[in-house]
Amino acid sequence: MAEATVADAAVDPTALFEFLLRMGDNTLILGHRLSEWCGHAPALEEDIALANTALDLIGQTQLWLGLAGAVEGKGRSADDLAFLRDACEFRNLLLNERPNGDFGKTLMRQFLFDAWHHLFLNALRLSSDTRIAEIAGKASKEVSYHLERSRDLVIRLGDGTAESHGRMQGALDDLWPYTGEMFMNEASDAVLAAAGVAPEPAGLKTEWDALVGETLSEATLKEPAEGYMQKGGKRGIHTEHLGYILADMQFLQRAYPGATW
């Protein structure tokens, strides 16, 4: 159990728990998607880089969900939260559960998320909850490297051949409606922001727009027009894809209840 802090006493534990689930579920689900590439990437260096990124994300999941379990106070471990919740209890962004598609789509999804993840973690380093600030400090080092890599590849492939450009533009157009959810404030966000635990998501949009816009322009890609944005992941209303991810991920824990591995 993590030690209680000053912020802990001041903040509604349910809001804090929800927030930690969002952080941990984002890394868990994206780490899962990246793992699906194992052995199938277009170059050996990419296999290594994807496994490395997935490993970082799973490591971060252990920290976020471990803290979530401690905050909840019902004795649930990170593993219990990862392997024994159903889809409606997951709080990840819909973006992260989108299927891998081709390698271009996987990279574009990674870049759009990394840009948000990087900005958000940097802000969390200043969290009034020291436990959160510590996890963010560790994770942000890893994520700044993820962003450097995905940003570089988006630029190179966008400005590569006509085919690579077309694929990256297609991936961007497809995934764009899933980016709005990153900046939608939930009721619990105001509580956390007031206590200095985490910034309100909407506040990061300007910086994200600048980072993404500058990258897309260097990649010679056209930023899609503002339009309808998909939402629901943060409230547990997911796409059809999440159920299959969980069926895969939770198989052993569900088929052999109570066994230890």
Partner: peptide, 27 residues
Amino acid sequence: VGQLPEGNWITRAPTLERKAILLAKVQ
């Protein structure tokens, strides 16, 4: 080629720790 039979179980590893270890091994 050896990444493939082990990669087959990364997404189904039974705990987060086992998943991380297997990812590190395949990497």
